[in-house]
Design a protein around this nucleic acid. Structure first.
Lengths: 248, 248
DNA sequence: CGGGACTTTGAGCAAATTCAACCATTGTGG
DNA sequence: CCACAATGGTTGAATTTGCTCAAAGTCCCG
């Protein structure tokens, strides 16, 4: 349907190719750098992208490997992490639709990335994308803005890891997920938790046991309710906010 | 001396102004976004900058205030931090010559900044600088590269805060400072520590007492030697590296 | 030489970890 | 259809790392 439109904007020498979704109708478009492109230019992006699907548990980006590609997450949940030699793991972020991955101006990736759910991504080779960025300064600006937001989020996470108690960490985590869902137009009352307790613990600098204990404790206090499908209902948002900011 | 050169490159309608240092001879130039500008364009930068000096202990950027300016650190040491309501503090970074501050595409600053030593900074109003970035894509690229490096550093710090022991944290901290000095051409054997133990503790998610105990312990093991002038000699770099990476 | 800021050291304590066992859910092969 | 293995989650008891509280010690700098 919108294929004709897409093909029309692709330079004629480019071979036509089938794809699962066109950029025009991509749900992640407005969330990511692609949103900075006008409809008529989207074809330029389409020809350099490689859509692919990643199965749960699959690592599709490994720390230390040459940083040859950028990834744009279209759908699903991803964990990004660093490992120490003895196996200690720090998850530095959970990524969802619209998030970028591989934004490294280093030679190698400085982290690994693993799919939590089934994930659809758009893969871009670095060089072509960088050339495109030169042509579309708006997209580069968008990239800078996203990097800047990531940086602010990273600093907030440093506060969580360096200064907050276990309860405060979990409350902060749940609220930031809820905030994200709210930004995307969900109700924000119930939050999807596709990751395991161990993942959450590795994100919050805790052990699995402690993370589990805190969830139990928050349930007992009726701040949250665990629903099926890996969802958590934030039944007392105010108390969670207070807890997260250390006021009780 | 180089003043004439500077004035020559300034558009003629601009009022001449005296300044402490010209961009051309600025030691921080090559370290920062200014390094992305050609000599002949430096005047464009010079007219929108406001050089100023900040005394030790002075807070020159406050979390929550409207983000109206960027800052470029020319000389000295700065701590960047976030506070919780009850006074808990997380220092998210120590900044030195060449580092940028205020790279926030948010409305308000998300952190405060305080001078540790006497600090010389160049202050830029956001709007004019953003217009300049539009004209000089090289500078914007440089900014993006710097943001990307900051992001990688922030993720490394999450590993430190989330998963490393007190000893590993201090070792990692000393080594990253040494690495920085090495990049700038110092020998890297001895590291300048202009910040207090409390600052270090607030950066590493520890208490002052623990930070102090770890320093004592590293001294006893002869991994480090405290020299006067707030310098630390890394007497056993190998052991420190092993310690920092959790191998012992 | 005195005072303030910073640092070090000690003793007791507590939050979170470690180690261990058990429970729940799900998918698989006999 | 069910036993059972695998994965993830929960709970308990003992331990430990780093924190809290307290008191000296040191270093500047006026």
């Amino acid at each position: 349907m919108s294929l004709a439109l897409a093909v029309a904007s692709v330079p004629s020498r480019t071979a036509p190719h089938t794809r699962a979704h066109a950029c025009e109708t991509c749900a992640a478009r407005r969330l990511s750098i692609c949103g900075a492109m006008e409809d008529q230019d989207l074809g330029r992006l389409a020809v350099i992208r490689a859509p692919q699907t990643v199965a749960p548990g699959q690592t599709f980006l490994e720390e230390g490997e040459p940083a040859t590609h950028f990834f744009n997450i279209i759908e699903g949940a991803v964990k990004v992490y660093k490992l120490m030699a003895d196996g200690r793991r720090q998850i530095t972020g959970f990524l969802f639709a619209g998030d970028l991955l591989g934004l490294a101006f280093n030679e190698s990736y400085t982290y690994s990335a693993e799919a939590i759910t089934t994930v659809r991504i758009c893969r871009f080779a670095r060089r072509p994308l960088e050339r495109l960025l030169d042509e579309f300064p708006k997209m580069e600006k968008r990239l800078l803005a996203m990097a800047s937001n990531e940086l602010a989020a990273a600093q907030a996470q440093m506060m969580v890891l360096g200064r907050k108690t276990a309860h405060e960490r979990v409350a902060s985590f749940l609220l930031s997920l809820a905030e994200r869902e709210a930004r995307l137009g969900e109700d924000g009352q119930s939050v999807h938790l596709p990751m395991t307790r161990t993942d959450i613990a590795d994100y919050l600098g805790l052990t699995t046991e402690t993370a589990s204990r805190v969830f139990t404790s928050l349930k007992k206090r009726s701040y949250i309710t665990l629903e099926n499908g890996g969802r958590v209902r934030l039944t007392d948002r105010d108390e969670l906010e207070e807890l997260a900011s250390g006021l009780e």
